[in-house]
C-alpha cells in the first residue's frame, strides 16, 4: 500500500502545509473579500433599485391623483361654462322672442283696427246698396219709390 510508505510522508506534509497555507492566504486576503464585495454591492444595488422603483411608483400615483383632480376641475368648469352659455342664449332668445311678440301684437292690433275700419266701411256700403236695391225692387214691383222708407226698413233689418 503506497499510502504507508513513510518515506513519502515528509514531502507530502511539507507541500500540503505550503500549498494549503498559500491557498488560505489568497482566499482570506484576496478572493473571499472580493466575492463578498460583489455580492454585497449587488444586494445594495437591488435594494436601491427597489427603492427607486417604489419612489417612481409613488410619483406616478401622485401624478395620476393630480391629473384626476385637474380633470374633475376642468369638467366642473366646462359644466359652468355650458350652463352660462345656455343661460345667456336662453335670455337672448327670450328677449328676442318677447320683442318679436310685442311687434307682432302691435301689428295684429293695427291689422285688427284696419280690418274693423274696412268692415265698417264695407257694412256702410252694404246699407247704401241694400237701400238702393230695396228702393229699385219696390219701384219695379209697386211702381212707387220711397228712398226714405227703404232706408228705414234696411236700418231696422241691420240693427
Amino acid at each position: 500500500m503506497p499510502q504507508l510508505d513513510f518515506a513519502t510522508f515528509a514531502p507530502q506534509l511539507i507541500w500540503l502545509t505550503l500549498v494549503f497555507g498559500v491557498l488560505y492566504l489568497i482566499m482570506a486576503r484576496v478572493a473571499l473579500p472580493r466575492i463578498a464585495t460583489v455580492i454585497e454591492e449587488r444586494r445594495d444595488r437591488i435594494a436601491d433599485d427597489l427603492d427607486t422603483a417604489n419612489q417612481l411608483k409613488r410619483e406616478t400615483e401622485d401624478a395620476i391623483a393630480s391629473y384626476e383632480a385637474a380633470l374633475l376641475q376642468a369638467r366642473a368648469k366646462a359644466h359652468t361654462i355650458a350652463q352660462e352659455t345656455r343661460d345667456r342664449l336662453t335670455a337672448k332668445t327670450d328677449a328676442h322672442r318677447a320683442n318679436l311678440e310685442g311687434q307682432l301684437a302691435t301689428r295684429i292690433k293695427e291689422a285688427e283696427t284696419r280690418i274693423k275700419a274696412t268692415k265698417d266701411a264695407a257694412l256702410l256700403n252694404v246699407r247704401d246698396v241694400a237701400v238702393d236695391v230695396a228702393d229699385t225692387i219696390a219701384r219695379q214691383l209697386i211702381g212707387e219709390s220711397d228712398p226714405a222708407a227703404a232706408a228705414r226698413a234696411v236700418d231696422s233689418e241691420l240693427a
Partner: peptide, 29 residues
C-alpha cells in the same frame, strides 16, 4: 526530503484551479 512529487503537483493544480475560479473568474466583478 522536501521533493516535489506528483502528489505536490496535484496539490498545486488543485490550489491553482481554486484560485482560477475564485480570483480570476471573479475578475469582472
Amino acid at each position: 526530503n522536501a521533493s516535489f512529487t506528483n502528489a505536490s503537483l496535484w496539490m498545486v493544480i488543485a490550489a491553482a484551479s481554486i484560485v482560477a475560479l475564485t480570483v480570476f473568474a471573479m475578475g469582472g466583478r
